[in-house]
């Protein structure tokens, strides 16, 4: 009881700080200097319609590389932490598990290709619409999740996932180095022509980079889910 009271008092204090912040907050009337720079220069410098994409992939591209690295580390640590408890010889056979049911089975066959296609659409159009590599990657991983739900004992995809993941990461860094060699700096998107503003093949290397990020993020999320699911089988 005392502990709950202490927690409540803490939340109350936090609430007072939040209330002061909320009452003292006045929205900006105009964009600040950084945002105004991105708003006015993106069309000429990057050629991407989506300014958020221009910031993530090019202006702050190095941060995104770091973010993808953090995600890779997370997937690797999840695999490492769970690896010792992986199911061994006493793994359950398919006959031990209840069948997935017709609805799930047919639904998976129908939906997985569509979900994969939609994920690819989202990350390839990342420079034109509110999409991008991270969102598209999450959609790709949801297709893998559906497959795992239907067949929890699926074992074949480990090698493929790690191949996709490592080659996407490698090409991402190669494109970054090419940007430093051929254009203005590391991860500069102008190694490819900027093209017509608003077209699918525009904004230089951004669609390529975002497709690589999408594959990498999708592979990382999938490998996390596969590790968790394989441990669960024990």
């Amino acid at each position: 009881m005392v502990k709950k009271a202490i927690a409540l008092a803490l939340i109350l204090g936090l609430g007072l700080i939040f209330a002061a912040l909320l009452l003292g907050y006045a929205p900006d009337a105009a964009l600040n200097e950084t945002a105004a720079y991105y708003a006015t220069r993106t069309a000429d410098e990057i050629g991407a319609q989506n300014i958020v994409t221009a910031i993530i992939v090019t202006y702050r591209g190095l941060d995104t590389l770091g973010e993808v690295t953090v995600l890779f580390l997370t997937a690797a640590i999840v695999g490492l932490v769970l690896s010792r408890t992986r199911a061994g010889d006493n793994a359950p056979r398919l006959s031990d598990l209840p069948p997935p049911g017709e609805l799930l089975e047919i639904g998976t066959k129908l939906l997985v290709p569509l979900i994969l296609l939609f994920g690819a659409y989202v990350f390839i159009n990342g420079h034109l619409t509110p999409g991008g590599g991270f969102q598209g990657g999450a959609i790709l991983a949801s297709a893998i999740l559906l497959m795992l739900l239907t067949d929890p004992l699926r074992r074949s995809s480990h090698r493929l996932i790690s191949r996709i993941e490592s080659s996407a990461g490698l090409f991402y860094v190669v494109i970054g180095v090419l940007g430093a060699a051929l254009a203005g700096g590391f991860l500069d998107n102008r190694i490819l022509p900027l093209g017509e503003f608003g077209a699918l093949f525009s904004a230089g290397a951004i669609p390529v980079i975002y497709a690589l990020i999408g594959l990498k993020v999708g592979a990382e999320f999938s490998s996390m889910m596969v590790s968790l699911s394989e441990t669960e089988d024990e």
Partner: peptide, 19 residues
């Protein structure tokens, strides 16, 4: 653009934060 759009920087930040 500078008078018509909201601030893109927090959106980029949050995209990172979600992942």
């Amino acid at each position: 653009a500078a008078n018509r759009i909201i601030d893109p920087v927090p959106q980029a930040l949050v995209l990172t934060a979600i992942v």
